[in-house]
Design a binder for these strands. Structure first.
Lengths: 299, 299
DNA sequence: TTAATTGATAGGCTTTAACTATGATTAAGT
DNA sequence: ACTTAATCATAGTTAAAGCCTATCAATTAA
């Protein structure tokens, strides 16, 4: 029978391509890892690793088995975290993934409540783009995501948390800044500053803009919301900002945030987990806590 | 770190509810299993088993962890069979599932060719109803299914093998037996004998019959195709039989098999596997072999 | 040529999973 | 009520497996 430790050694070799480093990562000596890996190869009757003088490579068979090995280790990890959750459903480590256009603006509003209602949970925060987060969630590296819901997430389980309106950020002296009643149609013909590709906010915001007959300003793409905000402030254009990112800066000297009349552009923020995730009690507590925290802020 | 052997012990206890039997199933002595399980409980800090003198029960925590344990063991099993397949892609055990209305009539036509093209594969044949087969395929107990494709199989991967026409089985002296040109519409108003519930052939056949305005004969349900055939032969009614089941009995004294004009009622027989099943080379060989075997028989 | 890097080998220690034999507790039979 | 059978736990022992340190051999870089 295969041993889980051997599979760890194999995946470590794949990650480090180096026996010494891999051994260190597994907290064993290099001869131990070397020996166990050889034993595994012998047991399977397959060569998994090509030992070259200067760099270690996996054979095709090795590549394929590493994938299987990871699945086994992931299942084993879920067994263990499930056991931990059974010990105390409201304790343990929890890795939370958020996107960059949400994390810095949302976390201040929710973390205090979360730490109060779940005092024994250690929250680890991970900031990344949607695609990466979903991948990591699937791999079990993350436990919970909070991000705008998209159709591609239907294979996961999700809980609607709140709708975040998008607001129009303009320089103070922009004609649209003084308009009494602002609607999406007013964007017709405008050029809109956007985030870099890969940020889902860009796609969502531009979706609304294109529908209203606005165009993307292709001369520049901001790499963060803060950059974008400063570009607007310095008069380089206008853009859509999520409400949480606009909060607290409404009275800026140079910036104006305009609220849209109905239909208000929004992004629906959801909490996403793997189906059958073992710590549902914890998830429900998080959903409830976040909804409560947000109910005061998002009207 | 959890050990795979411990997980086997746990699942064995779940299956047998008896330490001695479970130990036997794992090929170890009872004290060994007893001790290891206790150590596991200690390690997790959870009681998994309620030891009553007369019957052993799993605790709720145990029930939940058994589910996780099975997932781990399944993944480990896939690792091992993947390794075996890499050693020789065309060798090893292969568990093939078929439905009862297909197996006895199809297997004689395909097994000889399969054994010739894949001489080092040991085919284990499993006969069961669709629902059970899909469950077992998902659990990894089966490798390959051959059955009529239904929409509920879309989460699996499937390969169309052949279309099997349905024929009208009547007693020789039945009016429809002598009709020159037979079409589904001729079933209008007829009462059709059927198989018991659970057989997918029943649903498919009756689908065609209902559409043609025929009704189900509710006074009796046959538990096998052979029973059904004999009922028709003894003049109790008419029914639809798959072409393979009709073959070789066309010239019976008492039975008549009628071929339908277009649109011919059919059932589409497919080969179904888990997505990412590790032995695709083998699967492709099977698909090719079966298609070839059938090409002579189904016109 | 020398020094450094890297994986393999050797020998020894420790842990542990396995066994057999036996004990303790309960359920059922006489 | 006593005995027998069944069943899981305990005790003590053994064999194997995994790990360590120390060292070797091969290759690369200086």
């Amino acid at each position: 029978m295969i041993k889980l430790r051997d599979l760890e050694y194999l995946t470590a070799i794949d990650e480090h391509k180096h026996f010494g480093k891999a051994a260190q990562a597994c907290f064993v000596s290099q001869p131990t890892l070397s020996g166990q890996l050889m034993k595994l190869e012998q047991q399977l009757g397959l060569q998994l690793v090509e030992r070259h003088r200067r760099n270690v490579m996996l054979t095709p068979a090795g590549e394929q088995l590493v994938k299987e090995a990871r699945k086994v280790l992931q299942a084993a990890g879920e067994f263990e975290s499930c056991a931990k959750a059974l010990l105390d459903p409201f304790a343990g480590d929890l890795h939370l993934g958020l996107i960059p256009t949400l994390a810095p603006y949302l976390l201040p509003h929710i973390m205090a409540d979360l730490n109060t209602t779940l005092p024994n949970i250690n929250f680890f925060l991970h900031e990344n783009q949607t695609k990466v987060l979903l991948q990591q969630l699937d791999e079990g590296k993350l436990d919970v995501l909070i991000l705008p819901y998209l159709a591609e997430m239907e294979k996961f389980e999700s809980y609607q948390l709140f709708d975040e309106p998008l607001m129009l950020a303009t320089p103070k002296n922009h004609p649209l800044a003084t308009k009494k009643s602002l609607s999406l149609a007013d964007l017709h013909g405008e050029k809109i500053l956007t985030l870099a590709d890969g940020h889902c906010l860009k796609d969502q915001a531009m979706g609304y803009c294109f529908a209203a007959g606005a165009k993307e300003d292709n001369s520049f793409q901001a790499t963060s919301l803060e950059t974008l905000r400063h570009m607007v402030a310095s008069g380089m254009g206008i853009t859509l900002l999520p409400a949480l990112a606009a909060q607290g800066n409404l009275a800026s000297d140079t910036l104006h945030y305009g609220k849209f009349q109905a239909p208000v552009p929004i992004r629906g923020i959801s909490l996403v987990i793997r189906p059958n995730y073992s710590r549902m009690q914890c998830v429900r507590a998080i959903v409830a806590s976040v909804r409560k925290s947000l109910s005061d802020i998002i009207t």
